[in-house]
Computed example of a mutant assay.
Amino acid sequence: MMNGWKYFIQQLKWMIRKELLSTLKDPKTRAILVVPVFVQSLIFGYVATYDLDHVPYALLDLSHSQESTQLIAKLDGSAAFQRVRTLGNSHEIADCIDSGEAMLVLTIPSDFSQNLSRGYISTIQVITDGRNTMTASLAQNYIGSIVGSYNASRNNGLNVIQLETVSWYNPNFITRWNFLPALVIMLSLVQVLMLGGLSVAREREQGTFDQLLVTPLSPVQILIGKAVAPMLIGLIQSSIVLLICIYWFEIPMAGDLFPMYLTIGIFIISCTGIGLSISAISKSMQQVMVYCFVLLMPMVLLSGLATPVNNMPELLQLVTYADPMRFALDAVRRIYLEGAGFLDVWPDYIPMLVVACITMPLAGWLFRNNLQ
């Protein structure tokens, strides 16, 4: 009986050793085991944080008094706040928020100094960009702590200054308004990347790819056919998510459908190019799944879905220009919540089209090269 157990354990040890050797001796497998760990750890460490180290703000000081100057000095002296514009009138506020140049606008009223000298409560207004509820609420909290420090330094700590907060495009800070429109883009990325990636690898693994090559279809026709299917499925899925946002969760859509679908279409084309490039270099569906897993997490994190791109290290900010999701996300949020039109969001299309113009020909070249 004991000899039987020893023999069983010995066989098990050899099987485990064989699997470890076959896994670790394969260079591609070693890279898959090591590279994602380092890449995702670094990206999570730098990007996946809700600490706002960079809060660009615009100032509208209608008081121009010593008291307002002291309060502004506390703001500018903090490590987090950077003044990007000093406004001359309230008509300039909309441009700062809409363009994304400023995360918030601080307005100090003309009677600020008089109210403080008389012991009255003076209210200053903070306008934040509600298209990203998490960062907007954090920025408000930062402002509140600085105002609290200013209150503590004068008038025996009485709260003589109060904040009046206004959130544009999401007045009630409903998190759903922020994430569900972004889900239109995120689900398109996941589905199209996976479908495009699996299109060629699946047929290779099933043994039907060689049969496809002996048909009258040219390699270009095969590639186009495999590109169109994921694009159509991605558009249908995006439409379903869009309908759920509008009619189920009743999130009002401020923009038009034309720029919305144009944004989704361009984004899907760029994702399809990436997916087909992955499929062309993959020998099996397992490789496709691993490559997609390695790419998906960094693309989502670097897009600014949860944390602002401006808060990332400068090197990673440059890397985000290669991430089509960053620009699709910005355009969709602006169209859905802000009501932006084509003329407002067209600059976001350029990086996505550049990615598509690179990945589509690359997929075609890899496809033809692997046939030889």
Rank of each mutant, 00 (worst) to 15 (best):
V190H: 05
V35G: 01
N311I: 06
F267G: 06
F249C: 12
Q317K: 14
L198T: 07
T165N: 04
L158W: 11
G196E: 12
M186P: 06
G148N: 13
P109D: 12
P351R: 12
L163M: 14
K25V: 01
G225P: 02
I146K: 05
T86F: 09
Q162D: 05
V160H: 09
Q211R: 04
L62D: 12
P181N: 08
W177Q: 13
L212M: 12
L371G: 10
V354D: 02
A58K: 03
Q286E: 09
S78F: 10
N141E: 15
L12C: 05
K74C: 05
I127E: 12
V309K: 03
L301M: 15
S90E: 14
Y291R: 11
T359M: 15
W365Q: 13
S90V: 13
G304E: 10
Y46D: 08
I97N: 00
L198Q: 10
E164Y: 09
I335T: 03
T272D: 08
G157L: 13
I121H: 02
E92V: 05
C271H: 00
V37G: 02
S110T: 09
D76G: 01
W346P: 00
L59G: 09
S22N: 12
E164Q: 14
I266T: 10
G341P: 04
L59Y: 06
K25G: 05
D210L: 06
A328T: 01
R334S: 14
L138H: 09
T165H: 07
M352D: 08
T135Q: 14
M325E: 10
L62W: 05
L20W: 14
E250C: 04
V228P: 01
I43V: 14
A182F: 03
L21N: 02
N310P: 00
N172Y: 05
P230M: 05
D344S: 09
C245E: 12
F44A: 13
F258P: 00
L316E: 11
I236Y: 07
A139N: 06
M2N: 14
F8R: 15
K74F: 10
N132F: 13
Y291G: 00
P259T: 04
S153Q: 12
G197V: 04
F173Y: 14
P351S: 12
L276P: 03
G207M: 07
Y120W: 13
A322T: 12
T123R: 13
Y321I: 10
L187G: 08
G225Q: 08
L232H: 04
R118D: 07
G207F: 09
R204A: 02
F112K: 10
I240H: 09
W168G: 05
L116E: 11
Q206G: 11
K283W: 02
P259F: 08
L329V: 07
T135K: 13
D76P: 01
L212D: 03
I264K: 01
D323K: 06
Q317V: 04
K6D: 03
N151P: 04
A58V: 08
E203W: 05
L198I: 02
R326W: 10
S167Y: 06
I161H: 03
P56I: 13
V354F: 09
Q40I: 15
V166E: 13
I246A: 09
P109A: 05
L223G: 07
A152N: 13
S282P: 08
V192I: 04
A201E: 00
L87E: 01
Y291M: 07
T86R: 06
N311C: 03
Q372K: 14
V354G: 00
G148K: 04
L104V: 03
N369H: 14
G364M: 15
Q114W: 09
P308W: 03
